[in-house]
Design a protein around this nucleic acid. Sequence first.
DNA 1: CAAAGTACATTGCTATACAATGTATTTTCT
DNA 2: AGAAAATACATTGTATAGCAATGTACTTTG
Lengths: 120, 120
Amino acid sequence: MYFVLYICFMNETFVANWKSQLKKGTLTFVILNVLKDNEYYGYELIEEIKKHTDMEVAEGTLYPILNRLKMDNLVDSKWVEQGTGIPRKYYSLTEVGMKTLAEMNAYWKTLVFDIEKIIK
Amino acid sequence: MYFVLYICFMNETFVANWKSQLKKGTLTFVILNVLKDNEYYGYELIEEIKKHTDMEVAEGTLYPILNRLKMDNLVDSKWVEQGTGIPRKYYSLTEVGMKTLAEMNAYWKTLVFDIEKIIK
DNA sequence: CAAAGTACATTGCTATACAATGTATTTTCT
DNA sequence: AGAAAATACATTGTATAGCAATGTACTTTG
């Protein structure tokens, strides 16, 4: 009885950890794809991603990603003052960002296709 | 001119790093799926994955993964002596491994579906 | 007026990929 | 026959990314 409970626990933490690891790569990919069509500010991106996927994105995850993307010149940002409340930092794809994303989309497609075959 | 070359360089290293990050999660997932149908030994798994995907798997990546999977009771291993040459360590899915993989497959499916919609 | 929500940000921890390195045997090429 | 490449295992150190925790500051809701 205890053994069964233990196994289930192990199983769940493994899957939870796996989902977290799976974000390394897919999350950046998702963010760039979301930014492809519109400008978004950080907090809004979290809501947007939560709405469209099963992924929960911590703020301590998102903001560093956006900083990296800006450092690598894939996105640009601009502060937009609000009539009331805290100003928002809007992010948009750069030319380099769009080209890079196209490359990433191609790789993602083949990856999904290959894995599909392996899963059968 | 130099600027263009610089941009291209940045772009390629970003994508290369992204592909590496993308493996965190997908690689374990691929390995478990490959082991679903047959037993394989480590070196063979690398060949198998290279054959079916665009992924290059370093030995220093694979063996730690297999150790982790065994530690978590998702796979089991047995040494098989060869008539000639170095003995092989064959890995196979356990019951827990199969159940966990089923859960992972379900999550992967929804993830791919959700991302598909975002990419449009 | 307190709690929750909005919106930004950083720090420290953990897990993973991978280059580099090592051992040992067998096969292939010259 | 000897060198190089391939087979087959393994470990160590480094870099990266997700994330809980924590912090600031303003606004809305109960």
